[in-house]
Design a protein around this nucleic acid. Structure first.
Length: 295
DNA sequence: CCATGTCAAGGTCAC
DNA sequence: GTGACCTTGACATGG
């Protein structure tokens, strides 16, 4: 089991997700930001390795505006050396990588423009991982999407559009259960129809489920991952005390996490901590894991 | 230098 | 049909 955190490191004082305003777009701005982001990404991975953190989610902003029509900067060519070098480090050290395009990526939108932009954004994520030379076990995770007043049609649209994706995207794409619309059970049914692996999000499962236990849902999701997909990935978080339901915790609740791991005994999966204080919680989570492995 | 309004992108729900 | 909210930090501007 590898433990990780998403996108941002708050300890080492560099940014791998620096961006700029669309209005100030220029090739020199692109050059400067991507260059800085890649250098920082390497530093973060080195920091992580020193702490035993072997799972990391790369920010979608690694290459800002990469899928926007305004972008004519040949970032793959310009940064091929840097991308390959990071990728080699990742492979050599046994690091697991994921990416998570944000809420605007909706494969099943009835609006064809939204769908098209979503595919372009997915293509960018996969091209970045390809340029790093990473195997298909480096995943790109999204949610199923909206319901649009007709669940069955929305699901059918997802399945159909998933099948039509280029294989470069399909080999990396996984779907994650969300906290309001599509539970693990819905995702499993979609998997059965079109084969997309399901990434289990424990916190979302707490918010929305069909009555299965955590272990049942986790096992079902894990069963959708094939050999080429690697060890199943999962997301973990807990409710922010006093916060609105569904709000992610500020820092890890160690008792809650330990209970979760206990319920998942003997299962091997990687855990992404979606917790606000990032590497701080990841380090604490590792100490729990080590303690449990000993005892 | 600091404070604050704003930022590519969508959808849901309450009213 | 319209507007608040989701969720988020950091960019960028104006004082």
């Amino acid at each position: 089991m590898r433990i990780g955190y998403p996108c941002i490191n708050r300890s080492i004082g560099c940014q791998s997700d620096a961006t700029f305003r669309l209005a100030s777009y220029s090739n020199s701005m692109m050059e400067a930001k991507v260059s800085g982001n890649l250098a920082c990404l390497q530093r973060i991975l080195e920091y992580n390795l020193a702490k035993g953190i072997l799972f990391f989610r790369i920010s979608s902003q690694l290459v800002p505006f990469a899928s926007h029509p305004i972008c004519d900067f040949p970032w793959r060519r310009r940064f091929l050396g840097e991308l390959k070098s990071v990728g080699e480090y990742v492979r050599k050290k046994g690091i697991r990588i994921s990416m998570h395009p944000d809420q605007f990526v909706l494969l099943n939108s009835p609006d064809l423009g939204v769908h098209e932009r979503s595919v372009a954004e997915l293509a960018y994520h996969c091209e970045a991982l390809d340029a790093m030379g990473l195997a298909p076990d480096a995943k790109v995770q999204i949610h199923v999407g909206g319901v649009y007043g007709d669940r069955a049609a929305a699901i059918a649209r997802f399945e159909e559009r998933y099948r039509r994706l280029p294989s470069a995207i399909r080999k990396r794409l996984v779907i994650e259960n969300d906290d309001r619309l599509y539970a693990v059970s819905d995702c499993i049914r979609i998997h059965e129809t079109c084969g997309v692996p399901v990434l289990f999000d424990s916190f979302h499962h707490e918010c929305l489920n069909a009555g299965e236990s955590v272990r049942e849902a986790l096992k079902a999701a894990m069963g959708t991952w094939g050999n080429a997909d690697g060890v199943p990935m999962t997301d973990y978080s807990s409710q922010a005390p006093g916060g609105r339901s569904g709000k992610h915790a500020e820092t890890i609740d160690l008792a809650h996490f330990e209970k979760y791991l206990h319920s998942a005994k003997k299962l091997d999966f990687d855990v992404m901590l979606e917790i606000k204080d990032k590497e701080k919680s990841a380090i604490k989570a590792l100490s729990i894991l080590r303690k449990m492995n000993k005892g």
